[in-house]
């Protein structure tokens, strides 16, 4: 995102993430951050995206956690529901300390309701138990 200021008015440019096309969407914001105009999007997803992005930007965190007694040392995990963007690095740091016991299956929840925010880390791969 990049931003330009003109008095009390601001224009921000976002690249929409809703599809691979990546429209460059310009949003004009008033003195109270109210949306005055949205342009550059080729479909309604672009409008939805910037509205969400201005109100509450969210992203998916894909990472991994340690596995104890597994055939591999790590299992991939992700937040299937997008989480607040500003908290990504906090969760990333916290997830580096998590260790789960093998076996781990796709869909296993390794961290539930993080900070009471309903954020989950869920396994996206399989690790068998080492013999």
């Amino acid at each position: 995102m990049s931003e330009q200021k003109q008095g009390d008015y601001r224009t921000r440019t976002d690249i929409c993430l809703r599809c691979p096309q990546g429209c460059e969407v310009q949003t004009m914001l008033g003195p109270d951050d109210e949306i005055l105009n949205i342009s550059g999007n080729k479909c309604k997803l672009g409008r939805e995206y910037v509205e969400q992005e201005i109100r509450d930007p969210r992203r998916v965190l894909p990472t991994s956690v340690r596995v104890k007694n597994g055939t591999r040392p790590l299992v991939p995990v992700w937040t299937p529901e997008p989480m607040p963007k500003g908290m990504i690095m906090d969760l990333a740091a916290e997830s580096r300390k998590i260790e789960v016991e093998a076996p781990v299956h796709v869909g296993d929840v390794v961290l539930d309701d993080w900070r009471g925010l309903g954020i989950r880390l869920v396994a996206s791969g399989e690790v068998e138990r080492a013999e």
Binding site: P62, S64, P76, W78, V106, S124, G125
Partner: peptide, 24 residues
Amino acid sequence: PQCIHNGFGAINFGNDLPGPEYAH
């Protein structure tokens, strides 16, 4: 299995999945 980021499966599963889950 090493592509642990999401971005797989939108066409075949209608779902944005991590690589290992798509393979699984």
